[in-house]
Design a protein around this nucleic acid. Sequence first.
DNA 1: CGGGGTACATGATAAAAATCATTTTTTACT
DNA 2: AGTAAAAAATGATTTTTATCATGTACCCCG
Lengths: 229, 229
Amino acid sequence: MPEKSHKHVTCENCLSRQNSLFGSFCGEEVDLLERQKSCSYFKKNQPLFIEGSAPRGVYCINEGKVKIFARGEEGKEQIIHLAAAGEVVGFRAMFSGEPYKVSATTLEESNICFIGKSDFLDLVDSNPTLRNGIMKELSKELADRATFITNMAQKSVRERLAFSLLMLQDIYKEEMINLSREDMANFVGTATETLIRLLKDFKEEELIATHARRVEILDREGLLRVAGN
Amino acid sequence: MPEKSHKHVTCENCLSRQNSLFGSFCGEEVDLLERQKSCSYFKKNQPLFIEGSAPRGVYCINEGKVKIFARGEEGKEQIIHLAAAGEVVGFRAMFSGEPYKVSATTLEESNICFIGKSDFLDLVDSNPTLRNGIMKELSKELADRATFITNMAQKSVRERLAFSLLMLQDIYKEEMINLSREDMANFVGTATETLIRLLKDFKEEELIATHARRVEILDREGLLRVAGN
DNA sequence: CGGGGTACATGATAAAAATCATTTTTTACT
DNA sequence: AGTAAAAAATGATTTTTATCATGTACCCCG
């Protein structure tokens, strides 16, 4: 496992920034961002923010992964979104004027920069490109969640798992999927035992392979067929 | 049943506007809106827009109700949102630059005004209050959908139905809930037969009463208890 | 105002998934 | 490296929900 640790990343050289909401920033805009942000190292399973608390700013992931989740009645987590490097997390609550309705926690060691609420809102006010990017992002995410809801309502757990594994593959890129069975179950929306049984089925069907907890995708096409789209 | 028909509503006098995204508009802003909008009468079950098509503008509901839904693999509808008078529908796709991911259809006779895409986007560009209202709306809706997903994943159909009935009550206000069993099932996310059986249970438990297809809420508290929040 | 079509309702059965109990494997720590 | 604790895996069983088949009621239209 690569040794990660706190390092001060400059926005200018931040590869993650390129694909982020701030990707359009140039010269002095990057400088301003650089001055306003603070960069922190997060251990695994460390919370960025918690449901019910008041938003203090936004988090830009330089390296690492973050789960965004809500809690149901009995405290069971439902993972709503998984965010990887380049994503800006926590900006939705900036505009709603309400406390967070979801929580965010790191899934692995991460380097994450923080931009305070007023600085961020000033940026949004003064930068039409950023603003449009945000509106676009919000709208797309809204559409994604409509699909999410529909899948949840109409697909079987087996179909949802196949679909989820493909999504996870996109998030983990070259790496193998490395997520606890419980988190995976909370993403798919099922019981941990059911998830484990289905993983076993997929293994027997040679759609995936497992190396301890890590999951390797062997047959994308096959999974896509199982997912039913 | 009140006889509805096409009538030209002026934005100035439109009661629905007060609570809408355009609620903050004053004098000349209202005049501009008035000149740009066109007002139409829609019959029951008439589509406003369809999944996959390119957005042409936004729809402001003066009177009536609209369902927003996606279709799953086998064509089954999943109702994502129910919109009533005062709501502006279809503006999310304005910003995403993508075709509609959902469809919208009237649930009853409705009077709905239309504002073309470029007019609407100009309004948004030139009016910071409107813009902030939209960002707030998008963010809130995103939070709502996180809750929706969590409920879908973790609550039983019985719990979801109780919750849905309370939501429907809020939408239908003084009127009784008047929705086909199929639409109701597609909102709750279950089979029509299951929904009907559960309505019967609720009737026996005196939580609701039915008058033909219309549903009357007898015991809000009780339903809230069943819903489990 | 009657009849046909659609929506609603009920029943029987099968399938899917949750739950609870227990064992095995992996991980983290000293 | 050894061990305790946590996570993963398996098994048995129950509960929930979907599906298929069929009967009934409502309501729109001629």
